[in-house]
Amino acid sequence: MKNKKLLRQRRNAFWSALYAAVIYALFYIPVLVMIQFSFNDAKRNYSWEGFTTQWYGKLFSFGNHDLWESLVYSLAIAVAATVISVVVGVLGGIGLKKFEFRGKKFINLMLYVPIVVPEIVLAVSMLIIFMTVGIRLGMGTIVIGHCTFCIPYAVVTIKGRISGDNETLQEASMDLGANRVQTFWRVTIPSIMPGILSAAFLSFTLSIDDVIMSNMLASARQSTLPVLILSVNRTGITPDINALTTLMVLVMVAGMLVMSGLQRLRRKREAREMAEAEQRISTLRG
């Protein structure tokens, strides 16, 4: 009887793990194929023609000028959009949580619009405004576009990080003699730092991977990397693009590993210091 139950549980565990593996495969197969074709010995990626590493070499001899230019353009836009979104989003997250004012409900509603409305709609409506007002399309308009969908995410992330405690932490700080500015820098910001970091990370990844805003709000002269890929797709993607995007993922993953490694080291150090303190306390008391 008991064995039957155990057997059933084991069988369930097996099938559900298999199911999860299949879903993960759906996510990882394209990534692996993309990486594989960065080693494709062909001018353009249609079918597998054999193994070569030449594309990585070509990439770093800067033969494909357009590719590097678009990468730099993308990075510049992503950094600008991240900085603006984080500043506006952090201030906004704090302010919208803390203060009551007329129109707050409306602003909260507006923050949901870029999250739920199709990006193409947001993009074309901004495009019409920019064209009608006579703002020249280019990096500035793309940054504005990216910020418009990054800020809501930043605000949501920050608001989620501000617990009920945060208000009393600020009161405690003021009670101890810190004015509003000191309190903001010494208490408010550090206590929501994890939220700020994840908002920054999210904004950066949303911006660097964006196609629609970057396409609609761009000038004819320059395009971001994803827009370049979209246009090259018609004639066939060249393997050096695979090489570049492969390197980008590797950088991201490496960065993440370094971050979590540092975090683990810090936790270890704190644990060690704690153990030392414990010893000191017991000698003090003993």
Binding site: V88, G92, G95, M110, L111, V113, S125, I128
Partner: peptide, 25 residues
């Protein structure tokens, strides 16, 4: 002042780049 400094930028941004374009389209 604190309310304006914190909630101001996001409010202006949302009205300028979400509300206005949406109404205009």
């Amino acid at each position: 002042l604190p309310a304006i400094a914190q909630a101001g930028p996001v409010s202006v941004w949302m009205v300028l780049f979400v509300t206005v374009p949406m109404l205009f389209i």
